[in-house]
């Protein structure tokens, strides 16, 4: 094919794609106006009228919808960030345990991964919440004195109160995502040539130190891309919060839609918020990836 022909073909394809998208948007607009559902966002300034069980900043029912949505977004962010940290720690522990010399550790970790990955997350959340936290007694259990206390009402960690809804969601998300991260970590470690293990062992380095300073740095470039997608999954899965009564962004939008009947606007806001959140995570991970590659090239 000649170069000009190629150009016309591509140009034609691009134009028809644009026309196609145009038709879709026009279709949406016509249908929305026909059913009197044209978009409007003025309601965002009206008072929300509902209280929230948990809010990071000061909030009362007379505050506006937009403020309520912000509280929901912060609640989502809170559980996502805590979840990312906990799942990463759990995943690295379980993933490295798979290559351990200790047979019990290996079995434990492969059992954890096998069990958790076969069960839907929603069921696991119900389990942690209804069969876990809500089965605790009303009077706090204090296994470590005043350091940590657990009861039906939630967890008291160093004077910080975490509701049982938040705790169940956090545990559920981290345990679930941790299992997938463990597999990613294991894959990364396996990509490091066997010789590297033999090398540090022959130098007399202890197992843990060798893993940290020789194997993991080399495994990192293979781990990071997989890790990113697990992080994105965790962020998206956090919308299951409503199943365990945690007041995340989805829950707040759900209530908002019922009260204002602005379903399309509500879902648009939800989509945009999560798009932003996930773009942030992706951007952050890409940056990390580049830093890792750079530091390895320089060393």
């Amino acid at each position: 094919m000649k170069r000009s022909q190629k150009f016309y073909l591509q140009f034609g394809l691009a134009v028809s794609l644009l026309i196609f998208i145009g038709i879709l948007i026009y279709n949406l607009w016509v249908n929305l106006s026909r059913t009197d559902m044209l978009l409007s966002f003025r309601w965002l300034e009206q008072p929300a009228g509902f209280p929230l069980a948990e809010h990071a900043l000061s909030y009362k029912p007379s505050d506006s919808y937009i403020w309520a949505l912000c509280m929901g977004w912060l609640n989502s962010l809170k559980v996502i960030i805590c979840g990312l940290l906990a799942a990463t720690v759990l995943g690295i522990l379980a993933g490295t345990a798979r290559s351990s010399r200790n047979a019990l550790l290996r079995a434990l970790s492969s059992g954890y991964v096998a069990l958790i990955r076969q069960i839907p997350l929603l069921l696991q959340l119900f389990f942690w919440y209804f069969a876990g936290f809500l089965r605790l007694s009303q009077t706090p259990l204090a296994p470590l004195g005043t350091l940590i206390q657990v009861s039906k009402q939630g967890v008291e960690l160093l004077g910080l109160h975490l509701s049982s809804e938040f705790s169940a969601l956090l545990v559920g998300l981290s345990v679930f995502t941790g299992a997938s991260i463990a597999e990613v970590v294991r894959g990364g470690i396996n990509s490091v040539p066997r010789g590297q293990w033999e090398a540090f062992r022959s130098l007399g380095l202890p197992e843990g130190l060798g893993l940290r300073s020789v194997v993991l740095p080399q495994a990192l470039p293979a781990i990071l891309p997989g890790l990113t997608s697990q992080y994105l999954n965790l962020a998206k899965n956090s919308t299951l919060a409503i199943a365990v009564a945690y007041a995340d962004l989805y829950k707040v939008i759900n209530t908002t839609i019922t009260q204002t009947n602005r379903a399309i606007e509500g879902f648009l806001l939800l989509l945009i918020s999560f798009l932003m959140l996930n773009l942030l995570i992706t951007g952050g991970m890409e940056l990390l990836n580049r830093l890792v590659l750079k530091s390895q090239q320089s060393s």
Partner: peptide, 14 residues
């Protein structure tokens, strides 16, 4: 303090 569940069955369980 409202504890908001998604549907009635969960409200009952809670």
């Amino acid at each position: 303090t409202p504890i908001n569940y998604q549907d009635l069955n969960q409200v009952i369980a809670g």
